[in-house]
């Protein structure tokens, strides 16, 4: 029997039906935005005891069909000002009466498993009100700074709050991970870092939906970077060939350009809705998540047990309506049984 936040849950031996019942109840409280429930749900999806996997899936499945808030990734080079910008964004959104969730993924975790989740966000007191939910995650063993539990955690938070942010350090690799989890990707640019060519080489420029050239208080360097960036963007190299991302310029530290950024995020959200792109993105992201997780766990050799490309794609789509995490587990089981059959 485990007790979190004073609420008793079905234990490892609870029946599947019991688990589903409890999950529905908890999911309802999450959807109502109840703080204790959100926290408990996040703890449950992070629970990797073998005996508690049913509970985890049941909860995520119960949330799967519910409407979701806007999910935004904030990425950029180390020190570009992502956390400072998040602080400003949170205050700005709170001033507009929107509830906000933040997942701060700490890339600095240690071999020992220990992690210091300090300075993840220096939220000013005014931003620490009841409409803000802040959870930090250690990156654990994942490369690229995204922990495996980031996706499921976002799945929970986005069902309870209007806006959910996740901060990752952008060095090229991790965007690919975060892009599958979010609706909009904001790329924070450190002005005059001379990185632009690097970005282009790394193919980073094709992903972001909004660019924010930060530290405009430093003067001309920022406006120059913004101009350079605008000139360097072209539709041919975009994931979405119908829309050029806006390049904004501002100062997270001095709270300049934040309103414009919020407006740009809103605008992108409206664009996703009106064009149906949003729907498509979420589906694609989900498939990518499933494929990547299976790939990480079983490799190509394992994934091939699901059949040829068409069969594999069908398999990834098969568990519609079920949470990605659950689908991964189901497909994993299938792969394992086929691997076992092969061995026999």
């Amino acid at each position: 029997m485990e007790s979190e936040n004073g609420v008793t849950n079905s234990g490892p031996n609870g029946s599947a039906r019991e688990a589903a019942g409890e999950a529905t109840a908890l999911a309802k409280r999450v959807l109502a935005g109840e703080r204790a429930a959100i926290s408990q749900a996040l703890n449950q999806v992070d629970d990797n005891r073998a005996d508690y996997q049913e509970r985890r899936f049941a909860l995520l499945d119960a949330l799967e069909a519910a409407p979701s808030g806007v999910r935004i990734g904030v990425t950029g080079a180390p020190g570009a000002g992502k956390s400072t910008l998040l602080d400003a964004l949170v205050s700005g959104l709170r001033a507009r009466g929107r509830s906000v969730g933040v997942l701060a993924v700490d890339p600095s975790s240690q071999r020992t498993g220990g992690a210091l989740l300090g300075d993840r966000m220096r939220l000013s007191s005014s931003a620490r009100d009841a409409g803000v939910f802040l959870r930090s995650l250690a990156a654990r063993d994942q490369l690229g700074g995204l922990s495996e539990v980031t996706g499921p955690s976002l799945d929970v938070l986005s069902r309870a709050l209007d806006f959910v942010f996740v901060e990752t350090v952008g060095v090229g690799q991790s965007e690919a991970g975060v892009i599958d989890l979010v609706d909009s990707l904001v790329f924070v640019v450190q002005p005059a870092a001379g990185d632009l060519i690097q970005f282009m080489k790394a193919g980073i420029l094709e992903w972001p939906d909004v660019f924010f050239v930060n530290k405009a208080d430093l003067g001309k360097v920022a406006t120059r970077s913004a101009a350079e960036l605008r000139a360097g963007l072209d539709l041919g190299h975009r994931r979405d060939p119908n829309r050029l991302p806006p390049v904004l310029c501002g100062s997270a530290r001095d709270n300049v350009g934040i309103d414009e950024l919020i407006e740009a995020i809103d605008e992108h959200e409206r664009y996703l809705k009106s064009t149906g792109q949003g729907e498509i993105r979420r589906d694609e992201g989900r498939v990518a998540r499933i494929e990547q997780a299976l790939n990480a766990r079983y490799g190509h050799f394992g994934i091939d047990r699901l059949g040829d490309e068409a069969a594999r794609n069908a398999a990834f789509q098969e568990f519609k309506g079920v949470s990605a995490l659950h689908a991964i587990a189901e497909l994993g089981r299938r792969i394992e049984s086929r691997l076992a059959a092969d061995d026999a």
Binding site: Q110, T112, G114, A115, L116, L117, G118, D119
Partner: peptide
Amino acid sequence: IAVKARDVGMEVVYDG
């Protein structure tokens, strides 16, 4: 205390 807790493998939240 925060640094030591990390060193022994805990996840530590410290906001100043």
